[in-house]
Simulated scan of single mutants.
Amino acid sequence: MRKTTARPAAPGPVEEDVVDLLLAQHARIEELFLLVVGGTGQVRRDAFDALVRLLAVHETAEEEVVHPLSRTLPGEGGDAMVDERLAEEKQAKQTLKALVAAGVDDAG
């Protein structure tokens, strides 16, 4: 008699709440900022590169999913809130662009 083992089912799509995902990304962004500020050498450069990539993905998700939904909130608060976030994000993108251009090891 031949013994057979069952193979696990192929993994299906994982459903994750977008809010949970964005909150987890916020936590990871904070961790990476700490590594950039407190790190040195290759650890700092790797953290900076990961931070730049994560911020790009994160901001795109917010712009494509969260902001449009937020604008549909009842009352006038949604538009104002999104406009404030967009202004903050624009400033952050400009700062990040300057940091990328200068390099993470720049004294400034």
Results as ranks from 00 to 15, higher is better:
R28P: 02
L55N: 13
F33W: 12
D83C: 00
F48R: 04
A61I: 13
R45Q: 12
A56C: 02
L35E: 15
D20G: 11
E31W: 00
L35W: 06
A56M: 01
L86Y: 01
T40I: 00
T60W: 09
R85T: 01
G75A: 03
A61H: 13
G39Q: 04
D17H: 05
D105Q: 12
T5A: 12
L69V: 06
G77Q: 05
H26R: 08
A107L: 08
D20W: 03
T95G: 13
R2F: 01
E59G: 10
L35Q: 15
R45G: 02
E59P: 00
K3P: 04
L35V: 03
R2N: 08
G39M: 01
R7P: 00
T60F: 10
R71D: 02
V36N: 09
A107Y: 02
A50G: 06
G78E: 06
A80T: 06
A10E: 14
A9K: 12
T40M: 02
D20Q: 07
D83N: 11
R53H: 07
G103T: 03
D20K: 05
A47K: 10
R53E: 15
E62Q: 08
H26M: 05
M1V: 14
E89N: 07
P13T: 15
D79Q: 10
V65A: 14
E89K: 09
V37P: 00
V14M: 11
V14T: 15
D20S: 13
D83I: 00
F48D: 09
A61Y: 09
G103E: 04
I29H: 07
G38N: 12
Q42A: 13
L51M: 10
G41V: 02
L99I: 00
G75M: 01
E15W: 13
A9F: 05
E76M: 05
V52D: 05
E88D: 14
G78P: 00
V14G: 08
V18T: 13
M81F: 12
L55E: 12
L54N: 03
P68N: 05
Q91S: 13
L35Y: 07
D17K: 04
E59T: 11
V52L: 01
V19D: 13
M1C: 11
P11A: 14
V66Q: 14
V65K: 13
